[in-house]
């Protein structure tokens, strides 16, 4: 699971959960894979990302590296910034671990890179 995916995930569909965001990450295995860098793609993606959540997620698993905590002005033309964003958003993969609902503590396992967000009938 990439951090861009984590940036969108919530447990709000659960009964009794109102926001369910962001999900806490308990990472056991983290892998980095190289992904082709496309500056236009990344700069269009950035405004859709909750940057604070991205930073704290990266930090919580020890992969913040040198990512600025705020989106730089004119980032579209800042290749260095775009590359850092590219790395955190797309190249870090959580292979095993858990996502944890911030309100109920419900754990969603991540196995083989796949978060399992299936809910039981009594949880919805």
């Amino acid at each position: 699971m990439k951090l861009i995916t984590h940036n969108m995930l919530t447990s709000k569909c659960m009964k009794g959960v109102t926001v369910g965001y962001p999900l806490k990450i308990q990472a056991v295995d983290v892998k980095t894979t190289e992904v082709d860098f496309n500056p236009e793609f990344i700069s269009r993606l950035i405004p859709k990302v909750d940057w604070n959540v991205l930073c704290s997620a990266a930090e919580s698993i020890g992969y913040l590296e040198d990512l600025p905590k705020e989106v730089t002005e004119n980032y579209e033309n800042n290749v260095d910034f775009l590359k850092k964003a590219h790395r955190v958003l797309l190249e870090i993969d959580i292979i095993n671990g858990e996502l944890i609902c911030p309100e109920t503590g419900r754990k969603f396992p991540i196995n083989n890179g796949i978060p399992n967000m299936l809910l039981n009938e009594d949880e919805v």
Partner: peptide
């Protein structure tokens, strides 16, 4: 989960969940 595993093997971004309860934020895509 079996189909999602096949996707993962192809390096796709996937999660396992039910379409009645999509664990994505409002207006996220």
């Amino acid at each position: 989960a079996s189909l999602i595993n096949l996707c993962q093997e192809k390096g796709l971004n996937v999660i396992t969940c039910n379409c009645l309860y999509i664990p994505f934020r409002d207006e996220s895509v």
